[in-house]
C-alpha cells in the first residue's frame, strides 16, 4: 500500500506532499496510542476489580451459551466479547476498544500458537466491522452542524441497515469458513 501510494505520488507530481503525509501518519500513531492509553489502562483496571470480585466469570458463564452460536469455542473471552459488543451498541467508543483488545487477546490464547486466525477471531473481527449502534451520534452532530431540518431522521434507516451489514458479514464469515475447510 505504501509503495503504491508513493508511485502514484510520483506519477501525479506530488511526491513531497506524499512523503510529508508518511511522517504525519506515523506521528498520528503515537498520538492515537497516547489517547488510547488513558482509557485502556482505566478500563483494564476496572475490569480487574470486577474479575477479583468474581463478576467477569459470572458474566462469561451467563453469556457463553448465546455467544457460542456465533463463536463455538469462546471460553474466557465471552465476558470481554459481550462487553465490547454492548459498548459498541451504546456508542461508548472509548470503552469498546479496550474490551475488544482484551477479547482478541483471549481468543488468540485459545487459538494457541497457530498463525492463522481461528474462526472465532474472524467472526469477532467481522462483528466489529459493522456499526450496530443505537444512536450514530457523530453523524447526527455533523447533520445538525450542516443545517439539517431533522438531524435524527436517519436513525431508524441507519440502525436497520447496520443490522443488514452485520448479518451479511456473519453470513460471509460462515461461507468463507466452509470454503477454508
Amino acid at each position: 500500500m505504501i509503495a503504491a501510494g508513493i508511485m502514484l505520488g510520483i506519477i501525479n507530481g506530488t511526491q513531497s506532499a506524499v512523503l510529508d503525509s508518511l511522517t504525519a501518519g506515523a506521528d498520528k500513531a503515537v498520538e492515537l496510542a497516547a489517547t488510547l492509553c488513558g482509557s485502556y489502562l482505566l478500563w483494564m483496571g476496572l475490569i480487574n476489580i470486577a474479575k477479583r470480585a468474581g463478576l467477569t466469570e459470572k458474566l462469561s458463564k451467563m453469556l457463553r451459551r448465546p455467544l457460542s452460536l456465533l463463536m463455538p469455542n469462546i471460553g474466557d473471552a465471552a465476558a470481554p466479547v459481550a462487553l465490547n459488543l454492548s459498548a459498541n451498541f451504546l456508542g461508548i467508543a472509548n470503552a469498546a476498544t479496550p474490551f475488544g483488545i482484551e477479547a482478541m487477546k483471549r481468543l488468540a490464547e485459545l487459538n494457541g500458537k497457530k498463525t492463522a486466525p481461528s474462526k472465532e477471531i474472524c467472526m469477532f473481527l467481522a462483528l466489529n466491522a459493522s456499526a450496530v449502534e443505537l444512536l450514530p451520534t457523530s453523524v447526527i452532530a455533523v447533520r445538525s452542524a450542516c443545517g439539517s431540518a431533522d438531524p435524527y431522521s436517519i436513525v431508524l434507516p441507519t440502525f436497520i441497515s447496520s443490522l443488514f451489514a452485520a448479518a451479511a458479514a456473519i453470513a460471509a464469515c460462515k461461507l468463507f469458513e466452509e470454503i477454508r475447510r
Partner: peptide, 12 residues
Amino acid sequence: LAAISIFRSSGA
C-alpha cells in the same frame, strides 16, 4: 496509519 495517510494524499 502511515499507509492510510499516504493512500489518501497520493490521490489513490
